[in-house]
Amino acid sequence: MMTSTKLFVRRLLKDPLMLGAVAVLGVLCLLALVAAVVPFAGNPTEIKGMRLSPPSAEYPLGTDSIGRSLLPRLLEGIGVTLVISAVAVLITAVVSTAVGVVAGYAGGWTREIILRVVDVFYAFPAIVLAILVAAVAGPGRPAAIAAIVLVTAPLMVRMIAVQAANVAYRDFVTSARISGVRLPVILVRHVLSGVAGTLAVQVTYALAVGILVEGGLSFLGYGAQLPESSLGLLVQEGVVYMTAAPWMLFAPVAALVASILSITIVGDTLRDRLEPREVRSLT
């Protein structure tokens, strides 16, 4: 098992685009992590210099509207956004796997009821659902996390239920059932490993959606709150001072797009490898 996993990872990293995406993500995470432990770039909340001063040696990314250095705020923002999205997607993954596997394996009425409830949440436009959750929970980190979970879970439950149902009728599951293997063992050993690939792909895409939702929420004022910083919040501030201080917009936008893009590329590559399909060209 170990060797095949190693082989899989090695093959993935031979793909230059995938390698680039992983490198970008790694650098972003590392920078945010280091800045959180050792504030090498300065204190993100300290008011230091002139308001809206352009990038200089002292303030590598310039200062914001009340004179805070932008670089430490950006590093904090990357960290906050990635953590919010990661925590939310972790919750989504655990809940959706449990619910989806049960729905797919049990079938019948259990499956119908679960999928109908999922349908209800799927019917709301994502950003509306997110704002509603954030408004009810009160703006802030927990609200953003709850919103991302509610937005990403319906699709993931569906995908996992479909995949679990596919696995549930395979011969090796039937033979395990006939030979008296207990249900929890079947679910964990056979069904769970059968949906693992789908789960990995869906989790990656959900991470990108999480960053998008966090950004949208903060942009509309329902996400992370000042003096905290997050990518969405920084973009929103940048938009306000767009004409006077465009550097306030460029850096957060670059970080935001770079993280979503690299996560998407990782997702696409994983999907290619984990859900392989024959491909051919007509021409």
Binding site: A208, G215, V257, I260, L261, T264, I265, D268
Partner: peptide, 12 residues
């Protein structure tokens, strides 16, 4: 290119 298309949010 395909990734970029879905990676630039509307609020950007």
């Amino acid at each position: 290119v395909a990734g970029l298309g879905i990676s630039i949010p509307e609020f950007v």
